[in-house]
Amino acid sequence: MTDKEVILKIKSGEINYFEFLIKKYFHLLYQYLFLKIKNKEECEDLLQEIFFNFYKNLKQFDENKPVKPYLFKIAINQLRMFYRKRKKFIPLNKDIVDEKDGFVIFSFFDEEKKIFEKLSKKEQKVFHLLKNGYKIKEIAKKLKIKENTVKSIIRRGRIKLKIKS
């Protein structure tokens, strides 16, 4: 059975035919992922996501096109997401409280604290709120300043910290 026939079958609702595609491309994708990650469990998790995403997008997939490049494109995207998730996470360590206003300015590692010392107090407050998931509108409301001012503070702070995005 060709890939085209299998995809047409799946598109007509016969989900069990997806087994053919899994069997055909499993080892190829597994080898590729293992070469990149070198961890069996994580490879399997990614493989699950790749095949699941492929199934979810099968409706839009043109059966006349080859399956392999499409699967590898999904695999590359999944790998990118995987690497993004694996970025270093800095745990909370030390709290420095601004006694005047009574709210926390820092909850960072010393290294991060040093970086943030480049900022002014107002900028530190805005960045701290940003880090805690506040939106620009909410920050403006909390600090009783205009939204545009918050945006300017963020922009200025980013330049100081040399953050691109």
């Binding site: 989900i15 997806f18 087994e19 493989l47 699950q48 095949f51 699941f52 199934y55």
Partner: peptide, 17 residues
Amino acid sequence: MKNLEKKIFKKIYFWEA
């Protein structure tokens, strides 16, 4: 592989249902 295949199918069938 069999186990992983089962997991993939479980995910697909639940999503489809």
